[in-house]
Design a protein around this nucleic acid. Structure first.
Length: 292
DNA sequence: TGCCAGGAAAAGA
DNA sequence: TCTTTTCCTGGC
């Protein structure tokens, strides 16, 4: 556990003595697209059909627009708060190079997000930059999600499959999805018609899950790893994007090693903690703009 | 204006 | 099996 206790407060909950939890580390490490930093340093985001605001003051974390019951139902698991990240960090820090990355982003946590939303979000992420990915997802939510209000502002949930399966490729292209509109249409159709079973992938062992996910249109090895890691709790996943590639070349492997071999190397080196290692490396590489 | 970044898929070697 | 090309958009 990375927190001591949870208390009901006005319009939210207070978590006491939270460890290994820094908002920028969590929200700016490429795992989520629906969180936005506010002027006061808090973050507002939409997940599981709800809008919440998260703030950290000294060692306490405040989650607004929720209740203790809902915290236990959704957010405790969402923020992976039952895990003691000190154990993960200690194990990874045995490697001196990874120790450097861990010390740079000590408050990183892996979010447990909804598989359907994450599948589509990471299809949109392919060959795309984070601000653009956020814009496309926001367009889709605005058009077909449900409106929810918080602090006089309007937010939108991620649309469910019933709403999305009626849309055309052109509908997604109008949201600036570009050539990924076709992938979205095909993937939604595959899931809606039950030709692809998310539950089966979820309950499968990691390598089987990876192979299953790659059957979806627009999902290759990297996107499959992201889906496993950010929505399925499968921590042997090791997504190799440009930044992790740079980090791995910077720390461990020769510049001419292929993406697949970097993935293999990482998974063999970090085992069941590969996904955590990947997050520390990604954050380190991207924030420091490392070059090979 | 043109050029670049960014992964998946299809075509090519 | 590995490598190359195409797809699209926003920002510089």
């Amino acid at each position: 556990m990375d927190y001591n206790s949870v208390l009901q407060i006005d319009n939210g909950v207070e978590l006491r003595n939270v460890k290994n939890f820094e908002l920028p580390h969590i929200f700016d490490c490429g795992q989520c697209f629906r969180w936005n930093r506010q002027e006061d340093g808090s973050y507002i985001g939409v997940a599981y059909g709800k809008v919440i605001e998260v703030q950290k003051i000294v060692n306490n974390v405040y989650i607004y627009n929720t209740s203790v019951d809902e915290f236990h139902e959704i957010w405790e698991q969402y923020f992976d708060l039952k895990r003691d990240y000190s154990v993960v960090k200690e194990s990874l820090s045995k490697d001196p190079l990874l120790n450097q990355a861990v010390n740079f982003g000590p408050g990183i946590r892996l979010l447990n997000q909804e598989p359907f939303e994450i599948i589509l979000s990471f299809i949109i992420s392919s060959n795309n930059r984070i601000p653009m990915i956020k814009k496309v997802i926001d367009n889709i939510c605005r058009n077909w999600g449900e409106k929810i209000e918080y602090k006089d502002n309007v937010f939108f949930t991620f649309p469910n499959i019933e709403a999305l399966h009626q849309l055309s490729q052109q509908d997604f292209e109008k949201c600036s999805a570009g050539f990924r509109g076709k992938y979205l249409k095909e993937t939604i159709e595959k899931i809606y018609s039950k030709k692809f079973d998310i539950q089966y992938a979820l309950s499968s062992q990691d390598d089987v899950c990876h192979d299953e996910l790659k059957k979806l249109s627009g999902v290759g090895p990297k996107v499959a790893d992201c889906i496993m890691l950010f929505s399925m709790g499968k921590y042997s996943a090791f997504p190799v994007d440009v930044w992790v590639k740079k980090a791995m070349q910077y720390f461990y492997v020769a510049p001419d090693v292929s993406l697949n071999n970097i993935r293999k190397f990482g998974r063999e080196k970090f085992g069941d903690l590969s996904g955590f290692a990947q997050q520390y490396l990604f954050y380190y590489a991207r924030e420091n703009h490392i070059e090979i």
